[in-house]
Nucleic acid binder design. Structure first.
Lengths: 128, 128
DNA sequence: CTCGTTTAATTACACGCGTAATCTTTATTG
DNA sequence: CAATAAAGATTACGCGTGTAATTAAACGAG
């Protein structure tokens, strides 16, 4: 099995989010995109980029004097890893308790509920 | 506002799980309960217990020469913290994408689906 | 009362993370 | 070509965590 999960930290995921929205991007742009929401220093962002490179979560192609970065780790894949981790760590691997939990504790908008219902219909549809 | 969230680490949560199943318990029992699933040394477990004490996640009452530990942080509360954290960090705070994700990527048992449907019915019931 | 044993408290230590600062290389400009 | 500026690479540093080992205290056995 080829792909062992790439673990990225919280701060690193913020950088990935920027790349998931658009790629490739130069570090300058990534720095700019993160400045407002996080207040991070340029140096900080570059450190995170390098760590992500080291982890194989992003790739870099040289473009003149700078690099252009692209995500290698896909957002979906990361979401899945994180979800599974929560499920296993916190809910004993069982989906129903998690969902029950959300229905009790998270305020679901009417739209959420409608969407949920559609999802379930679709799932049941596919089953039979 | 009294309760700022108590952050507990992964290893610490394993100790809490033991206490959530039954409390109060002496460290000896907790050590014993964790030995098989984790292989942790007695010293390790005691360290974790002390850290949890420091964080206010458990309480200890002296019982002769030993302490009996009880959880202060409740399981529900912790699950909620962790769920919210996943939701915010990974799914932009929106429930529907999380659920969509689960429906696509996690194998939901027939029972899961049935439960989900019941949950939704209940929610909609409460709304009108 | 002293020694050993059991339990608790203190200390250890490497690694990842958040957050940069410093050093180095490379391209630009006079 | 030499100095400067911009980008990248290396190094830093304190804190939490995983994982204990070491030290101290307290109680029971002689």
């Amino acid at each position: 099995m080829p792909n062992k999960p790439i673990a990225i930290s919280d701060a690193e995921s913020r950088v990935m989010e920027v790349l998931w929205q658009q790629a490739p991007q130069a570090s300058e742009d990534i720095v700019a995109a993160l400045l407002a929401p996080t207040g991070w220093h340029e140096k900080t962002v570059r450190t995170l980029l390098n760590r992500l490179l080291g982890k194989g979560a992003v790739s870099a192609q040289k473009d003149g004097r700078r690099y252009l970065y692209s995500p290698l780790l896909q957002r979906e894949q990361w979401q899945q890893q994180e979800s599974r981790s929560l499920l296993d760590r916190v809910f004993g691997g069982k989906v129903a308790p998690l969902l029950a939990h959300f229905s009790q504790h998270e305020k679901l908008s009417t739209k959420d509920v409608a969407e949920l219902r559609k999802l379930i219909d679709a799932i049941e549809q596919k089953r039979r």
